[in-house]
Amino acid sequence: MSAMVSMSASMPPTWSLVKEIRKNSSEYLESNRESGISSEAVIMVVCELVENAVKYGVRASDGTCLDFSLSISGSQVEINITNGLGVLDDYYSVASAVDAINSSDSREQLYRSRLLQIYHSPVSEKGYLGLYRIAYEGEFDIACHLDGDLLHLRAWREFDNEE
């Protein structure tokens, strides 16, 4: 089985898009309940990724503001999100967080370390806590790449069928 929720925004999206995508994704997951997928984990990941894209994304040179898709194939869930990048440093920050996640032996320890950083240095910054949360709490794998001024993020997880 393969199915998908797909949404795009060609105008700079407002915060209401997060709720709209969450609602559509929840309905889609509800219709695929037999697949044993934790909708709670998936919706958290969807919301964190879309929130980041809406907060920090800009219109790219090809007109893209935000492209989102959620797909299920068997017990694998995959979420793809693309947004225009304002400054290249944002990509390096995201890539650094993704690298830290993928090279970590313990995602829980990584997340706890990030919380301790926030405790000791609470000054507002783009800390991408959501990415660490996706990896630890959601148990999703994450990858990112840059294509011109487009940032692509992919998150995926293979669920077992015991839930």
Binding site: M44, C47, E48, E51, L115, I118, Y119, P122, S124, L129, G130, R133
Partner: peptide, 16 residues
């Protein structure tokens, strides 16, 4: 029911 990751720093700040 749910809190996004942007809610976590204010909670940590309160704990501190």
């Amino acid at each position: 029911e749910y809190m996004n990751s942007s809610t976590i720093p204010p909670v940590i700040r309160m704990i501190k």
